[in-house]
Amino acid sequence: MKIWNTPAGGQVEEMESGYDVSRRRFFQLAGGIAGAGILFSACKKTSGPTDVYIGSGDTALLNYMYILQQVEAAFYTQAVVTNYYGISQSELQLLTDVRDQEIAHREFFKALLGSDAVMPIDIAFSSVTFADRTSVLTNAAQLEDLVVTGLIGAAPLLTNTDYTREFNKMVTVEARHSAYFKDVYAYNTFSTGVGSNAMDHSNSPSAVLAIAQQNYILTKFDSRKLPN
């Protein structure tokens, strides 16, 4: 299933397209072929002329986070619309609250970037079963953890420290979301996956963008000037 962000900031759904299926099948096939490396390298392009340019310096970092917040907002928008079987009133209430917080983050970045903001992007959650509680909760926690690592990795790279402060304000909230979804799925597991020394993980913008790209985003970006 694909979810499109409309320019107005709303979301419309579209039934699973043939493109998704063929793309997934391609990877399944490729995984089973000896010498698949050739196939991948043939398909891998660094940045082509049609890729969406995300800018350089702080603009690139803000767009990078705008992209991740679009993914989160789209995920919860879908999760609320087609909420999973057996959802409790408390869970639906908090899921809706998280959706609105992620929309707040998304719209904040959009407003901050102004004319530098990348256009709404093409998002697909092909590995998520929104009707299934386990699928939604585990994917939510995974997505939140990804954004936590992304915000921590990006915060020190910003040159405008006003933006750093905003990243700091948001990252602990994303960590709260992650902890909640883990706890709802399995009580007392709020910190599963944190690193040694009881510290969350951090990852570079290019690495996080690559993971998001692989799992959730169909749009291709020219991120060659993204600080790392």
Binding site: V148, L151, I152, G153, A155, P156, L157, T164, N168, V171, T172, V173, E174, A175, R176, H177, S178, A179, Y180, D183, V184, N188, F190, S191, V194, G195, A198, M199, D200, H201, S202
Partner: peptide, 24 residues
């Protein structure tokens, strides 16, 4: 001090997880 900032954020996120858990 970018490494210190990164590590302080890593710690503060775990504190946020504690807060979220206790609130839950």
């Amino acid at each position: 001090n970018s490494t210190v900032l990164q590590q302080a954020l890593e710690i503060s996120c775990v504190e946020a997880r504690h807060a979220a858990h206790i609130r839950y």
